[in-house]
Design a protein around this nucleic acid. Sequence first.
RNA 1: CGGGGUGUAGCUCAGUUUGGCAGAGCGCUUGCUUUGGGAGCAAGAAGUCGCCGGUUCAAGUCCGGCCACCCCGACCA
Length: 577
Amino acid sequence: MKATNLYFPTLREAPSDADIVSHQLLVRGGFIRKLAAGVYTYLPLGWKVHQKIAEIVRQEMNRIGGQEILMPALVPLELLEESGRDKVPVLFHLKDRNERDFCLGFTHEEVIADLARTDIQSWRQMPLYLYQIQTKFRDEPRPRGGLLRVREFTMKDGYSLDFEDAGLDSIFEKNHEAYARVFHRCGMEFVAVEADPGAIGGSENREFMLLAESGEDSVLQCERCGYGVNAEVAEIRPKPITVAAPDSVPSAEVVDTPGAHTVEQVCQFLKAAPQQLIKTILCRSGDRVVAALVRGDRDLCLPKLGKAVGEGLNFELADSETVERVTRAPVGFAGPVGLSGVEIIADPEVLEAADGITGANQPERHLVHVQYGRDYTATQVADIRTAGAGDGCPKCADGHYRQMNGIEVGHIFKLGLRYSKAMGVCFQDETGQNREIIMGSYGLGISRTVAAIIEAYHDEDGIAWPISVAPFDAVAIQINSDDPSQTKAAEAIYHACRSSGVDMMWDERNERPGVKFKDADLIGIPIQVVIGRGIMQGKVEIRLRSEKGHQEEVVIDGAPLRIAEIKADLLNQLKPD
RNA sequence: CGGGGUGUAGCUCAGUUUGGCAGAGCGCUUGCUUUGGGAGCAAGAAGUCGCCGGUUCAAGUCCGGCCACCCCGACCA
């Protein structure tokens, strides 16, 4: 493609609404444009990258026996009523002219289930693995971060149909391996982690996190055994607890702490360490209210609290009215001592506080010298705090977690019978029995992967795409568009490259050299060929976007071959296995 | 949904305090010069100052309402 014909409106400055790197570079480089919050147009360069990633995913899905289909984005709401997902908050609703309810698909378990219940009658028709690469719609509470969290995005979503558990286990692991190959081919490091299954449900699930500083998910991995888990749900290996002796500290005492409602303020006021504080957090699940106790320097983990209390309860922080009703004090002064009418769930670390500080359940007052066993007890002691770096791994004897930031780009689920049961998706097994189909669901966000790759591959000048996903393999930068000898050389290289399978952009614009260099760096094409002053000696320069300062001079005729070699080398480095 | 912020040329932003001709830089158009890291000179085009209403002789500026966008939180398949 000649640059004069290519629509790539680059910008010198990033728009003010972009504050993360991938968003800024995508807009500055002319890859995307915003239409509304969380809704973007892909311009030619952006769409090429998108298609390259989609094609890698497609190849790897086909490799494990997947068959590509395309389901509608427009889905009758009544289908989701069958599974009970019609009330999911991120669902986009609409009505047709006859006032019938529809929604825009946010994931397609129900559609696959509907397909399966009409077409699959026998165990002989399975296993099946069907997938699609399609636009998804989610009315996110807060779209943000350019392509990272949007309301309309592209996802590969695959669904497996099996007649036995072993088949589900097998396709689940095959997807894991295929995802590993996809990310490797995109040049990305990832960690597969256990996670909260959320609204999709099912027995087992695994998230795929691409590692990036700016990632908004906290990922923990055991440095010893490699066990990975999302910090949201990570358990901590129990360690021995020493409850302080009851008489080793003075009696509990109420002190005035005017204006101190936060851990930081209380610590400052009482000249105490956060570890001494016992945070008392009131949580609600329906009508049930519990008080959760964690050490002042720790965070409460709501999913773990729900798990500890049981019944798979979904807890949320209690509103201030509830807090005031239960503690008879404003938010910020709750404490376990004398707290009645609610269950008290304590994290084990809290018991170790020999000389604790808690809210006094009175306005502007705290209790000091508080001790577990003497001044209060818990209904239940359970691991309910958010895990972090250095905490013990629950899967091995002596490993500890290290913490990384990740971007969730894939999530796979063993759904089991969750949808088959709700929607009556049955088949006849070899004994003639009617049984429900065993399902699995496997998502991979294409557009989010685009952003994640940029988060990992950029410098102060712009993007440095891995060649497997780059919008072009190479760019020919012609320094002077008026110089006939440069034009002749550039044209020869351009045509030779194209016929040898190298996708080249030829920048023959009548612009200052600096503009062309800046644009080439910004849009991140891996191989740069500079056709300029060396032309007198019949030479051009070849540079790599990812290795600033490195360049080689080659004769004009030799350039296409060398460029093809470099492309093959770069691709080779991204080969899986 | 709660808290905070922003809305003026394609982009980045002044101007709003104290009401009085609609501004700058970048980009764009034309011409000449220039061509190895976002060129120089000259001439130009470009605006419903987010929208609606109000106050006023006069509103980008003051008042009321609404909308959009961004950030923090809640939420998040």
